[in-house]
Design a protein around this nucleic acid. Structure first.
Lengths: 179, 179
DNA sequence: TGGCTTTACTTGCATCTGCAACAAACTCTA
DNA sequence: TAGAGTTTGTTGCAGATGCAAGTAAAGCCA
């Protein structure tokens, strides 16, 4: 099994892997540059606005937002700080649970997003979808969707495993103490 | 044509786009964390070593290396600085053209890469290829390969266009002066 | 050859980002 | 209901990275 897991990538796999890395990096870099130049928004900032705009009441908990944009909690805190300074979002404490903070899209944020949307859409079409057939599109959605889901599941499993490990340590300590 | 270019993403396209962003981000984040924890190497550092190891004489010009790992020139300079401090690569000036710098893999760098390879390979299989069929693999290679190539071509075209624009400006200035 | 343009890299500076430590608030239990 | 343990966000700090400016070396042309 270990042998299987460590089988080197064959040519097709290597091609897919390198294409993913390079294709993704180049497209994102171009999109980011265009969005920054034309709209003064970074890509993560744009994504925050998009996710908020699609959420009920145009608001999301910080932790949900961090999951959506794939940013660390601290990274998201600072990004929301910045967007709040620019007036594009604001923070609301949750009344039921004072630990929770909601990021809320402001009218200015909505307007800024609406203004940036055409730039982003054009870039995504031009740099990405114009080079893909519908079939390829379908495959990418399925394949990378599966990867994403598995990664989420693995993440949850890793957290659980960590808890078990800690429990194990504690149990071990207890046993040592008891002996 | 503009209408066509600004047609909103349909459901399938949206699915592909989000899957690409999230799938890529999550996988890379996990790979980076594992490589860092087990081997003390960042992902870009690992990629630099890989590309050098595959190059003739295990060396590449800084600019070629930057293209390969999709990093800005300054970013690559600093990354090579760091790797050189650790003794994994060294710099050689080109004798024929003193502007050019080659990054060369050292024996230590080769050894470090060999040590890190199993960790990376296992991660790539576990987090990515284990969730893909051979057919999906093939499609990803083709589709994102096309995107990557187009992006390269567009980049070259953009540089050319920029030159033209500058030429145009100069011509305009000249005309203005002459009038 | 002298000077102007271009190329290849390197730095200054500002920003972004993540990890670890921290603070605050909630939950569960005795 | 006091206290231990969790969860949720926020900072301190260090490292990474890009843009613009700077430096050095070629190339080109009169």
């Amino acid at each position: 099994m270990a042998d299987q897991a460590l089988r080197p990538l064959d040519e097709r796999e290597m091609g897919a892997w390198r294409a993913l890395i390079r294709g993704h990096n180049r497209v994102m870099r171009r999109l980011e540059a265009e969005l920054e130049a034309e709209q003064g928004l970074s890509l993560p900032a744009y994504e925050v606005l998009v996710h908020l705009s699609e959420a009920p009441d145009e608001r999301l908990r910080m932790s949900e937002l961090a999951m959506n944009v794939v940013l660390s909690p601290s990274g998201l805190t600072r990004l929301v700080d910045k967007l709040a300074r620019e007036g594009l979002v604001c923070r609301h404490r949750c009344e039921a649970d004072a630990r929770v903070v909601y990021a809320v899209l402001t009218p200015e944020g909505r307007a800024r997003l609406d203004a940036a949307y055409p730039t982003h859409l054009r870039g995504v079409r031009e740099h990405f979808f114009d080079h893909l057939s519908g079939e390829q599109c379908e495959f990418i959605a399925q394949a990378l969707g599966a990867v994403d889901n598995a990664s989420n599941a693995a993440c949850a499993a890793a957290v659980a495993a960590e808890c078990d490990a800690v429990d194990g340590e504690l149990a071990g300590d207890f046993a040592a103490d008891a002996s």
